[in-house]
Design a binder for these strands. Structure first.
Lengths: 221, 221
DNA sequence: AGGCGGTGTCAAGCTTCTTTCAGGCTTCGT
DNA sequence: ACGAAGCCTGAAAGAAGCTTGACACCGCCT
């Protein structure tokens, strides 16, 4: 919305489509970066922290679903718009479950693509780098938490979980939601407890992460 | 699913579809309210602050687009999922421009509806459900009561029982009703007394829970 | 190869919650 | 004032759920 326009990362392995998207989006005032495969996409997403990612499902190597899961696992919540050639419902569902925020079937009208990107940037948290609560803060780009001046290195999962807690302090994070957001659906629920434990130890006293028995965990002073 | 499921407002003028949606969503753990036209939808949305609104585009009187615009004009940012029978792109674009967050074309797979609702509820600020009476309030999602600024952690049963009292203050809650609502039918009636006792102790003075001898208990200042 | 950090699994130990019982206490009717 | 009925609460057993140490596995770097 500001002078430079929102930054969009386009991930697609098809050069003509890349060019088309880049041109269209630029013309609409977005500033566009392009990545041609999953690995490049992850690297670029972490480096430049775009406002939206437009992600093709079908790619050689790591496909769009995997890229999206990896992003979420790293704790990135950047809105993802998934592009696919297939229209079968199970695929659409899988896309959303992988953590995508929206879904568009090829071929699409460019107007619609733009409207959807706008909808995502409008509602998405503006790619905040830093989350805070009480004397705790978390820098997502470096995965470093700070508590009372002391800085604490976190692993990917630890940071993703803490982020989830920080995005909604004083409200309960259920195991289900944590599993869904931070892990791929196949993990055993206990893994959440395990990581909560690690975070508690790392974050020190007084405790900030509270258990709500039978429900989940919560951040509160 | 989760203990305090997300609240969904379904707006549709077609009773069979209403029923279908209500049943499906309830089964998935959402708590569902239904409105049959635009006016009712706006009123209900303001009253109950749902977590997501599922909105049919085609309705007599005020249509879905208008409802959505009115919501946004009032400053409500509740995520809106628009339902439509038409698949033409211009309509989809108009929906998103009216401020909808997502769009689904009828007929749709219920799985997909659910996946999309989940994707939307993941972001929105969780309008927490809060019950109040006198200087006492209760947040169901965190099971925390507040009395005169002092916050009090409650266990599952304690919170459920207090909820029941708070939903109907100044009217008598019989043991039978409490057993029926909070316990499975097999418990001995004395459990209720036991829990009333605990609540009284936790909530402190002056007492709010009064005994109505031979009948049950009541909330009153 | 070997070491290392990060991750996922399991099971035992521990804490907290729930329920029951029984005896003391209060209230009500006579 | 007395007895009966009903209410309240301490103690303790049992259940449910959380926490944590130990360990296996993986990918990565040396």
């Amino acid at each position: 919305m500001t002078a430079g326009g929102e930054r969009v990362l386009v991930v697609d392995d098809d050069p003509p489509l890349q060019r088309m998207l880049a041109r269209t989006l630029t013309a609409e005032g977005f500033s566009v970066a392009v990545a041609a495969d999953g690995g490049a996409a992850l690297a670029e997403a972490e480096r430049s922290l775009p406002d939206v990612i437009v992600l093709d499902v079908a790619m050689p190597g790591m496909d769009g679903l995997a890229v999206c899961r990896r992003l979420r696992a790293k704790g990135m919540t950047t809105p993802v718009l998934m592009l696919t050639a297939r229209d079968a419902v199970p695929d659409r569902v899988r896309g959303l479950q992988a953590g995508a925020d929206d879904y568009l079937v090829k071929p699409f009208a460019t107007e619609e693509l733009i409207a959807r990107i706008r909808a995502l940037t409008r509602r998405g948290a503006p790619a905040t780098e830093r989350l805070q609560f009480a004397d705790l803060s978390l820098d997502l780009s470096t995965r470093t938490a700070t508590r009372g001046g002391r800085s604490i290195e976190l692993s990917g999962r630890e940071s993703a979980l803490l982020e989830l807690l920080l995005r909604d302090p004083r409200s309960v994070l259920t195991r289900e939601r944590a599993l869904e957001q931070v892990w791929d659906d196949a993990a055993v629920p206990n893994v959440v407890d395990r990581y909560v434990g690690r975070l508690r130890r790392k974050l020190g006293d007084p405790p900030l992460i509270h258990t709500v028995r039978g429900v989940g965990f919560m951040l509160r002073s």
